[in-house]
Design a protein around this nucleic acid. Structure first.
Lengths: 255, 255
DNA sequence: TCAATATGTGACGAATCGTCACTGACGAAA
DNA sequence: TTTCGTCAGTGACGATTCGTCACATATTGA
């Protein structure tokens, strides 16, 4: 065998990413339920022991993939945060960026969903669990920034007995719940229910924002047209990729 | 060996429940991540082939347990639906019944969370997947009933472009998102975040209801005291069991 | 130069999965 | 009553997957 040079942090990280990318390809090819450590080992230029040096098992690998993909999601969130427009519209845009992410990267989205599952968390390393929590906090940065902007321009006021963290969490949990429960509809326009994930996310977001008293309220402005325009402006390539996959964002059902 | 008599539907169902109950005991004892088919087989008075006749694998068993526990949750939902009080308060009560369920039956709650995970769904039988969808629809019956009552007594009006199914889904996805994301805080009063699942569920529910224009609005009534009273009246035994487990519902942080 | 340390390897045994040849009860037909 | 086909359970078995560790080689410091 050929032992390598002494490894530094950068090389270790690089190799971990290489393993993760191979695993994602396997998930895309065979489905997430057929991922095994033996299959991943067969795909990478490292030995089994080396792969087990990075991940304590399959579940830990899934969590590491989820962490990696949250960096991707964070980028979309950050783009929504940076977009011009009123704070409320940007938050709606951010919620839709999560949906765009789920449509664009279904394998990564599946890993994110798995990462919340107790049977995955229970077999994951503290390293990757802690990393996941750190990344979720980082994910909140863009949400936090938009809420901050809303508070600063007086389009939003803190409800009695709530702090900014709670407002951020409110938005995130609503978006997370809606997209997760309708994950079956993310890849196809309409499933067994009459619910359309785009429409429900839009309506649910606006009801929550109205409940927060976030201006402009739904009765004062049509957020629909504005969202469509903003999405086309901020995510043209992403929307084109989604369309190329045969799943176009459905806005016809909004009216 | 002694082969049994010809089995009917009832006997098959009885045996499936027996296997499920044994699996739940194993989850409580060893953790959900250590559940294996071999361990379940060792605990039941049936052969491996018989267990595999009921479940195509571990994931299918987890989904069957989730389905079984949704029947338990549905009972709590139904009790909230039947409670006296205005529709909005009953919906808040129903949302809290999900939290009570999660605190009371952590093993079952974990199975419900697993049931949404792609690596579990991908290895489950159509039979149990279809059964799960049927049960989720049934779960919605109580939510639907409360929304219906609100529409009928004019405390709530259908928002423009939304039907009753969408309102029901809005509530469910918000509650599901909040409780799932804070599942780490369900068993202990406060975790790594400053978020308290009782408080966030309360605030999030009320913001959403306010956004729906569901009366009495938060500015017109203190839902806090009313919720506490209703919970004590509807779920005294459940709250006592939770307290006995060392995890009391935390209302001090609401003010 | 040598001993200690660092690191990768893949054969190996353990655990788990999932199947199926075998078995016996039961009912129908001869 | 006997024979045969069907039904349903069984657990040994082979396959797969997991997870480890004795071994080998390079590097480092004394």
């Amino acid at each position: 065998m050929t032992p390598p040079k002494l490894l530094d942090e950068t090389a270790l990280k690089e190799r971990e990413l290489q393993i993760i990318n191979s695993a994602v390809l396997l998930i895309q090819k065979n489905g997430i339920e057929n991922l095994t450590m033996d299959k991943v080992v067969a795909q990478v230029p490292f030995s089994k022991g080396t792969v087990y040096k990075h991940f304590i098992g399959k579940e830990d690998l899934l969590l590491a993939i989820s962490n990696y993909s949250i960096e991707v999601l964070g980028d979309l969130f950050y783009r929504a945060y940076q977009f011009k427009g009123c704070a409320r519209s940007r938050m709606l845009l951010l919620n839709f960026s999560y949906l765009i992410y789920a449509m664009l990267y279904p394998a990564l989205f599946q890993c994110v969903m798995c990462s919340k599952s107790p049977n995955v968390v229970g077999k994951s390393s503290d390293k990757h669990i802690n990393e996941g929590e750190r990344l979720e906090v980082k994910l909140m940065t863009s949400i936090h920034g938009i809420v901050d902007d809303g508070l600063n321009d007086n389009s939003l006021a803190l409800p009695f007995n709530m702090d900014i963290q709670q407002l951020c969490f409110s938005n995130w949990s609503m978006a997370y719940g809606a997209i997760t429960l309708l994950s079956g509809e993310v890849e196809q326009c309409s499933g067994r229910t009459n619910l359309i994930v785009e429409r429900e996310l839009f309506n649910l977001s606006n009801m929550l924002f109205d409940g927060m008293g976030w201006q402009p309220l739904t009765k004062d402005r049509n957020h629909h047209t504005e969202l469509q325009t903003a999405l086309a402006e901020l995510f043209p390539e992403e929307l084109a990729s989604i369309k190329a996959k045969g799943r176009e964002l459905n806005f016809n059902s909004f009216s």
